[in-house]
Amino acid sequence: MNFRLKVWRQASREGKGELRPYEVRDISPATSFLEMLDILNEKLTNEGKEPVAFDSDCREGICGTCCLTINGEAHGPAHPAAACQVYMRQFRDGETITIEPFRVRPFPIVKDLVINRSALDRIVQAGGFVSARTGSAPEANSIPVPKQSADLAMEAAACIGCGACAAACPNASAMLFASAKISHLALLPQGQAERQRRVLNMVRQMDAEGFGNCTNTYECEAVCPAEISASFIARMNREYFRASLRERMGA
């Protein structure tokens, strides 16, 4: 198969970027999207040109490193899937494919298609954990957890931290990401002690990073490779009101 590509090139964070046209030929349909970019880069390198910078690591949809906007969709057309799980057989031969980075103010562009997502780490640092000193844990089976809550917590915990939710959200809001972590820990008995501080601090940090606000358009859950449900955002709101009230009551 042959493809025309329009790829976002940007030298550095400050640099001014633009879409540049490229061509790749004789791509087998079994090639993954990132391998197609590898081929393009091999070609550019051999021509003595600078290859396109794009990020990836596990290439099997679990590490959350890859982050491409393919034809206007975060992670491309194969929902639910990360960009590294997109294969060329999903495109038409001869098609023109536009490749852009995730565009969210708190994700500054490092180079070309590579962005810096440390904003998401800072949200977790604000409280996305259980303070469990190593070695101080009680026997694992001393606290039973109803299967339903454990399963629901697992659904929320599946988030791979890719940031596609914010990239796809018309408001560049990271609420799906934040709500997934908040819900995961709020659903488990181990998360109760810090439940209040956690949601208040994580939401405060999320706002401070400059993400947008949710207006319930559900684009995020549509592109989420981990199929995180937007109903966790409702849960987060609930958690937030509860915590604010209790804080007010001094509880």
Partner: peptide
């Protein structure tokens, strides 16, 4: 065994049985 205790306390959502145990 300490590892499992530690991870559960951190909120690692291990698979559970209906009785709520691991």
């Amino acid at each position: 065994n300490n590892i499992i205790d530690q991870c559960v306390e951190q909120g690692v959502p291990f698979a559970r049985e209906y009785g709520g145990l691991l």
